[in-house]
């Protein structure tokens, strides 16, 4: 699945701790409580499009591994809250996804670039979808 993980060496330093703390603060979730049961991933309807399963996103956040920000998963997340409904530790994973998106967006990052959307497509996409996508995916 993910080239983000295979054979990777994660070296722990104080930076890792700071990164986890930021995600915790932004999401308001008790990330340390995750015990990697995998329930969120089984509940998620979007996993076929993801490069990291939601549970792995949680794990990387626990470890404070910033590479998680390179994952497509937070952008694929449809915020359906299925994961949150199933988590036995009461974590709202969708909130964590949102926190990760926010972290990137705040660094002036646009996941959706309007200029790359073709004319044909623009005509077909409902305007309301376009607007909410811009809200969710651009800084």
């Amino acid at each position: 699945m993910s080239t983000l993980l295979a054979g990777r060496v994660i070296r722990i330093s104080e930076r890792n701790g700071r990164f986890s703390e930021r995600v915790k603060a932004l999401s308001g979730e008790e990330i340390d409580l995750c015990f990697q049961c995998g329930g969120c991933s089984s509940a998620c309807p979007m996993t076929s499009q993801m490069d990291l399963l939601p549970s792995k996103v949680m794990r990387l956040v626990q470890l404070g591994e910033e590479a998680v920000l390179k994952s497509r998963t937070p952008w694929i997340c449809s915020t359906c809250f299925n994961c949150a409904a199933r988590c036995p530790r009461g974590i709202d994973i969708a909130n964590v996804m949102e926190a990760l998106r926010q972290m990137l967006l705040r660094s002036k990052f646009d996941h959706l670039k309007l200029e790359t959307v073709g004319r044909e497509e623009l005509r077909e996409i409902p305007p309301i979808a376009l607007i909410s996508s811009l809200r969710k995916f651009t800084s």
Partner: peptide, 12 residues
């Protein structure tokens, strides 16, 4: 190993 990630952890 972090078996959850298939990755190696190095922790001083």
């Amino acid at each position: 190993e972090d078996m959850m990630l298939n990755a190696i952890i190095e922790n001083p």
